[in-house]
Amino acid sequence: MASHRRPSQSGLTHSAKVTVLSAAAVATAAAAFGGVPASADPHGGSPQTAQARVDRLFEEAESATERYNAAGERSVKLRRALSRTQDGVARGQENVNRMRQALGSVAGAQYRSGGMDPALILLFSSDPDSYLSRAEALERLGERQNAVLREFRVVQRELVQERSEAARALAELERTRAAVARSKRVVERKLAEAQRLLNTLTARERDKFTRASRSGRDRAAPGAVGAPAASSRAAAALGAARAAVGRPYVWGANGPSGFDCSGLTQWSYAQAGISLPRTSQAQRNAGRRVSLAEARPGDLITYRSDASHIAMYVGNGQVLHAPYPGASVRYDPVGMMPVSGVTRV
């Protein structure tokens, strides 16, 4: 059976996600990214061909969604790092300014001591003891000046380095923002084309397509509920995922009103007090790998060789997941697509 899943996007803005699913966005994206003209026959008169293309487009969109999620997560981390670096630059500049003032005070004190040779000052001094005391103080002042100068040079070098790091972080952030935008355009184009193909089918063909290529259901099969979870936290995460059944798939969303595939698993485990990374690929490596035969409720099941889709095992050969645009969070057979890994968090 052709793989058939939904673009699982890791979330930046809620508005971006909802827009993609609107009819207006579908039409706009189709025109903007060179979709097949509406007057053309998109599937050569064959509903089966159109259905296969929809499946493939959903799969491609889901891969792009996870790239979008990864770029979005990277962007958030870079913004935080840039903020910390900029704070360091500001503190470094304050240190430089403070030390400049200190060096100016030392230089002024030396200037006020006069330019006469110290031996002559001592010869003509009416109070040699007082002069010697002042000389010792000046010597200490000179030592302090040297120390301040050394520290000043160190602070200046650190400031230059921090400014360079801030510039690099800013450039990387801009590249990541561009990657986010590219992935978003790919997702929109794929989803728009898939929707356009679905619109060419009759109501009967669309219904047949849904029954044939997707065995989704909103209830677990008998026996699934009673299977033991892998841990108490896994049980809590599974409980949260069960509570989300029926909520819509929204690419780039991680709850609570809508989800993409990795958004659902991330949100569910967050309700159990466990922080998962944003993408399905990263979640695959977020725990201990086990075999499919060892799968327990609450384990994460990744699909396809690129791990572009993820679901949560519920037991009895079933998973719970956010499937694809137009569908809601639901139960499906664990073998709905090629399994690439099982992870116990």
Rank of each mutant, 00 (worst) to 15 (best):
K190E: 02
T202I: 03
E165N: 08
R175L: 01
E193K: 02
N146I: 05
R177A: 07
A194G: 04
T176L: 01
A169P: 08
K184E: 09
A178H: 04
E158Q: 11
L170S: 15
A181Q: 12
A167G: 10
D207H: 14
R140E: 10
A178D: 15
E139P: 04
K190Q: 08
S164Y: 03
T210K: 00
E188L: 02
E172H: 10
T210S: 05
L141T: 10
R196T: 05
E205W: 03
L198P: 02
R177K: 14
D207Q: 14
L173G: 07
A181Y: 04
L173R: 01
V148W: 03
R204I: 09
L149T: 10
Q195M: 10
F152C: 01
R163A: 14
E143G: 12
A169R: 10
D207N: 14
A169L: 15
L191E: 12
R157G: 06
T202P: 07
A181P: 05
T210E: 04
V155F: 01
A137E: 08
T202E: 11
N199A: 14
A166F: 03
K190P: 05
R150I: 07
L191D: 09
R140F: 08
A137D: 11
A179L: 05
R150S: 11
R163E: 15
E172I: 05
A194C: 09
R163N: 11
R175F: 02
R182K: 14
R153V: 12
V180P: 02
L197W: 03
R153E: 12
L201S: 01
E193F: 03
A169W: 07
A171W: 03
T202A: 03
R150T: 06
L197D: 07
L149K: 04
K190T: 01
V187H: 03
R206Q: 09
A171H: 10
E139R: 09
R182T: 07
L159G: 10
E143M: 14
R185M: 11
E172T: 06
L170V: 14
A178R: 08
E188N: 11
E162N: 12
R140A: 12
E162Y: 13
V160K: 13
N146E: 07
R189K: 11
F152D: 01
L198D: 03
E162V: 10
E139G: 10
Q156C: 07
L197V: 15
L141F: 03
R189W: 05
R175P: 02
V148P: 06
R182Y: 11
A135D: 07
A135K: 02
L201T: 06
A169N: 07
A203M: 09
R157L: 08
A203W: 08
L201A: 07
A147N: 06
Q145V: 04
R206E: 04
